[in-house]
């Protein structure tokens, strides 16, 4: 500004005066501009790369959600090996009950069948979860009051869980159709 001073003559003097009287406002504007620029730079540096890839979110989050480990292998994987059980289940009412509904999460077993073996199940507890009588259960569903029905005796004493109907066992040999 020093060198431009002499070049500007009388008319500019008033202009200079105006400038001087709003100098503090210009300084304030400069402070705000610096803040704004700092924000824009920071924003560009900090916002995750994949943000906005599919929408207003971090696109990489989708793949991260999909990377969660699996606990339940799924019955098709079980059936690949345990073909004998598949055949057995086909003969009974539990044909539609998926393996891990009773046996629990067994992805680790599917991955390494030799070293990870499923625990033995307690049928007295397990069967009651579904078959204990409850008025809210649909009428078509087979239900018993276990206390009256078995008096605490484990269900698999009489029933074979993969093919639960008792008369099935007697008639299976004589070529029952269903």
């Amino acid at each position: 500004m020093r060198f431009s001073g002499p070049a500007i003559q009388t008319p500019a003097h008033g202009k200079n005066h105006v400038f001087k009287d709003i100098e503090h406002l210009i300084r304030l504007a400069a402070v705000m501009a610096i803040g704004l620029i700092a924000f824009i730079v920071l924003r560009a540096a900090v916002v995750p790369r994949s943000f906005g890839q599919y929408g207003h979110y971090r696109g990489a989050a989708i793949a991260e959600a999909a990377a969660h480990p699996i606990s339940y292998a799924g019955h098709t994987v079980c059936e690949g090996c345990h073909t004998d059980v598949v055949e057995q289940k086909k003969l009974g009412k539990h044909v539609g009950v998926p393996c891990e509904a009773c046996h629990g999460p067994l992805a680790k077993h599917a991955d390494d069948p030799a070293s990870v073996t499923p625990p033995k199940l307690d049928t007295a507890v397990l069967c009651a979860r579904c078959h204990e009588a409850n008025s809210a259960k649909p009428k078509w569903f087979p239900q018993v009051v276990t206390a009256d029905h078995s008096g605490g005796v484990a269900c698999d004493t009489c029933h074979q869980p993969h093919k639960p109907r008792i008369e099935d066992e007697k008639t299976a040999a004589s070529g029952r159709k269903n």
């Binding site: 009287d21 709003i22 100098e23 503090h24 406002l25």
Partner: peptide, 19 residues
Amino acid sequence: LSLGSNNISERSLRIDERL
């Protein structure tokens, strides 16, 4: 706080007032 400006001329204060 003054942002290094110490101009409190009547005119500058009037501008402040209006702003």
